[in-house]
Amino acid sequence: MLLSMDRELLHIIGVTLRMSFFSTLISCTLGITLGVLIGQKSFKGKRTVNKITGTLMGLPPVVAGLIVYMLFTRYGVFGELKLLFTVEVMVIAQCLLITPVVINLTQSVISSNAAIIRETAVGLNFTAAKRLRLLLNENRQALLSVVLNAFGRSIAEVGAVSLVGGNIQWKTRVMTTAIMLETNKGNFSFALALGIILLVISLIVNIIANLLVKEEKR
């Protein structure tokens, strides 16, 4: 089955990658930006913000799915957009789940060395843009872990995507929901094969990401 790679399987892999890519991209763009801002600034209410993001890190996927479902159902606030049971709404549900994780992890990474980086950079008369470049560069390995964590959560998530996506064949079926379906049908070998593909995708993404953010050694 793995070697023959039938059309449906390729479609499932395609939908999975598209959903994971966009939810990782959006949640990391939002989360890293906010995490960097929170991590390097001291302000009133910072602890409260951290508590909120920390609590949201534990948000159960089905609850996130339920919230998004209610917002996008026909009579929901965004019902007119008719996005329920599409890949787009699956991405939105995943962003709701993943963004707090990215914010919390990023701010924790940044706050660990933001002060010393700032002092060094100000001492060298760096511009604000150069200071930010330095801050991101100095934390690139840790931020890569944050991005991979976000991608890992996205590609492995099942509760929210099955609720808002509906696991529709040729439309919103992804690897995880397909594994669930095949397991329920007793088709264990196919489910296991899908699991292996999922792991291989994760491995390839990890290798590529690590190559992109290679530490200079010697």
């Binding site: 060395n113 010393i116 980086i117 002092e119 060094t120 100000v122 001492g123 060298l124 008369n125 330095l134 560069n137 100095e138 690139r140 530490e215 200079e216 010697r218």
Partner: peptide, 24 residues
Amino acid sequence: GKVLYLPQQSLPFGMTVRKNILFS
């Protein structure tokens, strides 16, 4: 005038020594 400051704990940037200087 323009001030340059070396703090007690200055961070070596995670790049080569040469790039550290060129970057600065």
